[in-house]
C-alpha cells in the first residue's frame, strides 16, 4: 500500500514505529517475544538493562496522557536511556512554533528517539518523513489514525491469556469512528491471523466503509458478543465527538454498555480489555471492569515490557553490545 514503507530499514528491520499497517506477522511476533523476555526484568530487584545506555529519548506529547507517557518513560529508563519529557501542549507550540521547528530544535540537541503523541492523524508520519536519518520515531497516538504500541500491548495481553491467535473471535465495542486504538488493534489482529474481528457500535460511531478494514459490523451488542473470546471496550471519546453522534450517555449505556448480563452470551473464558481510561457506567459496568474476567490492569502492567521491546527493536541498528545484540 505504501509507496515505500518508511517504518522499515533496508533489511526489513524496524526503524520507526508509526502504524501496524504494513508490518508482517513475523515482525509483530518478534516484538511480542522480545516483550516476553523483558517481563522478567521488571520483576528483578534491579529493574534495568543497559541496552540503550547513552541514548536520549524524548517524549513529545502534544496531547494529555498519563498511562502512555508514564509507561514510555518507565520503559526508556529500564533500558538505561536518558529521558526528556516535553509537554508540548504547554510549551513552544502554544507560542506559535511549528511542529517542524520543535522537531528541528530537539534534533539539534542530539536526541536519538522521539516518542510522539499529537492530535492530528498523520503527525507521526510527517515527523518521520522530516526527521534526521539517525532519529527513530515512535507513534504514541496520532489523531484517529494509529496507536500501535497500545495495540501491541493488547496483543501481548491476549497472547498471554489465549496462547494462539488463529482460533479467536475478538469484539471491539464502542467509538470505532474516532478511535486510533481500534484501528491499530484491527490491523494487528488481522496480521496475527485471528478468526474473526467484530466491530460493535451504533452506526454513528462506525466509520465509512469500515468493512474494508476486515471487520464484521454489528449494531447490536448482544448479537455481537455471542461466542466471542475477547471483548475490547473503547472509551467514548468526548473530545473528538463532533455533531450529533449519540443522544445520551444513558441510552448508550442501555444499548452498548458492557454488563454481566450481556457478557453471559460470550464464551465462558472470555477476557475483557479496555485501553483506558474507563468511564464506569458509560461503556462498562464496574462489576465487569473489576470482575475476574477483566484484564484491564494487566494491560497497563504489560505496557512497559512491550514498549521496551518496541524501543529496543527500533534502535537495534544503534545498539552495540559485546557479543552482538542481547535481545
Amino acid at each position: 500500500m505504501n509507496k515505500q514503507n518508511i517504518q522499515l530499514d533496508q533489511d526489513g528491520g524496524l526503524r520507526h514505529f508509526l502504524t501496524i499497517e504494513g508490518l508482517n506477522r513475523a515482525l509483530l511476533t518478534d516484538i511480542l517475544d522480545t516483550a516476553e523476555s523483558f517481563t522478567s526484568i521488571t520483576e528483578q530487584t534491579i529493574k534495568k538493562v543497559p541496552l540503550l545506555r547513552g541514548k536520549t529519548i524524548v517524549n513529545l506529547f502534544f496531547e494529555a496522557s498519563t498511562r502512555t507517557r508514564t509507561t514510555f518513560e518507565l520503559a526508556a529508563k529500564r533500558l538505561s536511556a536518558d529521558v526528556l519529557n516535553i509537554d508540548a501542549s504547554i510549551s513552544a507550540a502554544t507560542k506559535g512554533e511549528t511542529l517542524l521547528d520543535t522537531l528541528n530544535n530537539l534534533e539539534a540537541m542530539h536526541c536519538d528517539m522521539f516518542v510522539i503523541r499529537h492530535p492530528n492523524s498523520g503527525a507521526a508520519h510527517f515527523i518521520a518523513q522530516h526527521a534526521a536519518p539517525h532519529v527513530s520515531i515512535i507513534n504514541a497516538g496520532d489523531g484517529s489514525h494509529a496507536h500501535p504500541t497500545q495495540a501491541m500491548l493488547d496483543m501481548f495481553t491476549i497472547r498471554r491469556h489465549k496462547g494462539e491467535f488463529h482460533n479467536l473471535c475478538v469484539a471491539i465495542v464502542g467509538d470505532i469512528m474516532h478511535s486510533r486504538v481500534a484501528r491499530s488493534q484491527i490491523h494487528a489482529l488481522s496480521t496475527l491471523g485471528v478468526k474473526e474481528i467484530r466491530a460493535i457500535a451504533p452506526r454513528t460511531l462506525i466509520p465509512a466503509e469500515a468493512e474494508t478494514l476486515g471487520v464484521h459490523i454489528y449494531n447490536d451488542l448482544r448479537e455481537g458478543l455471542r461466542d466471542v473470546d475477547v471483548v475490547i471496550m473503547l472509551r467514548l471519546q468526548y473530545e473528538r465527538m463532533r455533531g450529533a453522534s449519540l443522544p445520551s450517555e444513558h441510552e448508550y449505556y442501555q444499548l452498548f454498555g458492557l454488563t454481566e448480563d450481556k457478557l453471559s452470551l460470550a464464551c465462558p473464558d472470555v477476557i475483557i480489555m479496555h485501553p483506558g481510561p474507563i468511564n464506569r457506567g458509560v461503556e462498562i459496568e464496574s462489576a465487569v471492569a473489576d470482575g475476574p474476567r477483566s484484564v484491564i490492569l494487566q494491560q497497563v502492567a504489560h505496557g512497559t515490557a512491550v514498549r521496551m521491546a518496541i524501543m529496543s527493536r527500533a534502535m537495534r541498528h544503534k545498539i552495540v553490545v559485546a557479543g552482538g545484540e542481547s535481545s
Partner: peptide
C-alpha cells in the same frame, strides 16, 4: 473524501 481511505487513515471524512 469519506470512504475506505479516510477510515484507514483516521482522517475526518
Amino acid at each position: 473524501h469519506e470512504g475506505a481511505v479516510s477510515t484507514r487513515l483516521g482522517l475526518p471524512g
